[in-house]
Amino acid sequence: MNGLRRLLAALALASVATVCAAGVESPPQRVVSLNLCTDLLLLEIAAPTQIAGLTALARDPVLSPYAAAAARLPVTHVQAEALLALAPDLIVATPQAAVSTVALLRQLGLRVELLPPPTTVDELRQTLRRAGELLGQTPRAEALIASIDPISQAPPAGSAWLLQAGGHTPGAASLGHALLLQAGLRDLAQHTPYASGGFVPLERLLSARADVLVLSTSAGRANSLAEQFLAHPALARTSARHVPLDESLWACGSAQFAQGVSRLRAALSAP
């Protein structure tokens, strides 16, 4: 036990030393992410050589749009010991992820930066910009920011529910809501009890006349009750148009959002 503690302390000291030696100005060279959302940001903005560890989820093709790229990069377990062994000079995470691990890592003197998941397009731009600054990759981040269109460009396309598994709608404070707006859709969750997100009862979905149901699923999977909800025969019989949209395009708040908007627009303008 004592030996382990000494080893941990030594490792921590070594990491602190690297950080100090590297100085504040030069970009971090061993970055580790503790969460799928920060994985995606690293994969978009960091140079591959900067990435010292991603979560295993980054390699899951259902959840991660960059699964192929992540397969060539190291993954790690979100456990303090495994992370210390990587001797990272920067750890990025979302504020909700692995709270106790983050507290311990900070106590041991490692640099942990938290990137809250964006809930609006403006926040998404800020998150990308901040990630660019942290990683010393500002030009890449700015290029991604430029790929996200201003909101005014979409022609009105009617009313819509954005539905996730189990009939959950993400609510106004979410990128999903922003995605509907960017595609010219009016979010039917507004002015209902689900405006801040929640599970919409099937009857409500059938009674509020929607032009479009955006079914935000993880592609190619339906072996859970929650995912089966979206296949309920009553939903298929409504007059609303069904547009499937891969959840990984917006759920995390990465530059994939722009992809999501253009795919949704393309689906809506198709005959």
Binding site: P201, L202, R221, S224, L225, E227
Partner: peptide
């Protein structure tokens, strides 16, 4: 499947919703 673990309660407690 990330949803499966949340569905334990359905199988143990039952529901007729939807």
């Amino acid at each position: 499947n990330p949803y499966a673990a949340f569905e334990i309660v359905f199988w143990l407690m039952g529901s007729l919703a939807d």
